[in-house]
Every structure is written in structure tokens, then in C-alpha cells.
Amino acid sequence: MKNITLGISLFFTLLSYAQVSTNKAHDAIVEEFLTNCAEKHNYGFEMSEWQECLDQGLKKDSTVAYLWQQKAMPYFKCKKYEVGMPYLNNAVLYNKQEWLPYRGFMKCIFTKNYSEAIIDFEECIKLYGNGYRMDHTYSFYIGLCYLQLNEYEKAEKLFDDYVADIYKNRQQLEHPTAYFYQGIAKYELKKWEEAIAVFDKALKIYPQFSDVKYYKAICWLKQGKSREEAIALISIAKEDAAMGYTINEDNTVYETYPYQKKFSK
């Protein structure tokens, strides 16, 4: 029995050592071929040089997940989704915990493959719990996907739970985008009064939130409020949008988010 215990202990010691050694080896490859090579180039106009550096690193070790993700990333940013996704799939293959939620995010916000995004995020929750990616929980993105698939009741439940969790924990500050989508779910379910109440919470945090003002104005119209008041609020929303006050997620630089209002000039 003592020998078995010692054997198990030795196995886990060697496994831990192997993981540390692998991580150090991967870090060295990332430094050599990403930091000191690819990042010397601007992938906006030197894509081939960027990719050649990463390819050299992957020839050295094809299991470095971060290099696969870095191959995918610039293609997504220039909307070459079909080119980038196979590289991202390889990143998930070699480091699922890190890159599966990222792939779900890319499918939700960039490629708009909502059913596939739900599958990725549900697997994330099953394997790792309801963690965060890009400032929001995995269930938040599932809610976005349900909005885009017209499954509004499912979306409402997820956003209600998300906002309640934020309020309960308080470690995560109340987020105007969370309120926006909670309100949108209620708007789609024709719960005009509830939607307005939630939109007002978003505006309390972010008074210039143009998208919220637009949908609040539509709710007013649906309630029978005067057309003049609704149009006045839409005009204010349009002015706010012209100054850049829209959904303030980082990736709105690259993609339009669900229900983000683009006002004509």
C-alpha cells in the first residue's frame, strides 16, 4: 500500500513537472515568434508577415494554442471569418478551457452563428461554470443568441437572472449593457412598462446611451404616449449617437452588436 501511494505521488509530481516544462517551452515560443516577430508587423497591412512568423512558431510546436488564436484574430477583425475559424478551432483543440468561451464569443458577436455559439457556451458552463468573457457571463451571451433566434422568453429569463446576480454579488458593477438587453427582451415580449423601467436603470448609469433612448421611445409609442414626445427622445438619441454614445463594448469597433441602432445621417 505504501509503495502504491508513493507511486501515485511520484506520478503527479512528474505530471506537474511536465506541465510546467511545457508551459515554459510554449512561453518561449510565443516570445520568439509572436512578441519578437509577428508583433513587429502591423497585420492591417502586413498580414502575410504576421502569419509567416506564427507559422514558424507552429512548425516548432503545433500545440501552442495561443499562436493558433493569434493567427485567427486578425482575420476576424477584417471579417474573413471562414479563414479565421479553422485556426481558432485548433486553439480550442489545444487549450479548451481558455479558448472555447472565446470561440463562443466570436460566434455570437462576429460570425453570428448563434446556435453554434449556444452549444459552445453551454459546454463552457457544464465544464467550467458560468464564467466571464469580455466583461459578461457565458449565460449573458446565450441570452443574446436567444434574442437573435427570436426565443425571447428564454432570453428574458437569462437576462433577469444575470442582472439579479450582478445586483446580489455587487463585486461586478451594474452594467448598462446588461440592462439594455434585459429591457430589449421585455420590449420584444411587448412588456412596455417593464422594458421602460429597465431602460431607465440603464440611463441612470449611462445617461447618453442612445440605443436605450431609441427603444424607450418606441415603447412610449406602443403605450400611446404622444408622438411628439417619442420623436423628441429619438432626436436626442440620434444626437448622442453622433457623438459616439452607443453600446460601449470594446468590440463595437469591429462589429455591430444585436439591436444596436445605426441612425441615418
Rank of each mutant, 00 (worst) to 15 (best):
N3L: 13
L6F: 05
L10N: 01
H26P: 09
V30E: 12
F33I: 09
L34N: 01
N36W: 09
C37V: 04
E39W: 09
E39H: 05
K40E: 15
A65M: 10
K77S: 11
K77C: 01
C78K: 12
K79I: 05
K79N: 14
P86R: 15
P86E: 03
N89M: 14
Y94T: 08
N95Q: 04
Q97R: 15
E98H: 04
W99P: 02
I109R: 11
K112H: 12
S115V: 03
A117T: 15
C124G: 07
G129H: 09
N130L: 10
N130F: 03
M134H: 12
H136Q: 15
L144P: 14
C145G: 02
Y146R: 10
E151D: 07
E153Y: 06
A155C: 04
A155S: 13
K157C: 00
N169L: 00
L173E: 14
F180L: 08
Y181N: 00
Q182G: 04
G183R: 08
Y187C: 04
E188C: 09
E193G: 01
E193M: 01
E194I: 01
E194L: 03
A197D: 04
F199K: 13
A202N: 02
Q208G: 10
S210V: 11
K213A: 03
Y214C: 00
A217R: 05
C219S: 15
K225P: 11
R227W: 02
S235T: 05
I236M: 12
A237D: 00
A242T: 00
Y245I: 02
E249Q: 08
T252D: 12
T252C: 01
F263D: 14
S264P: 04
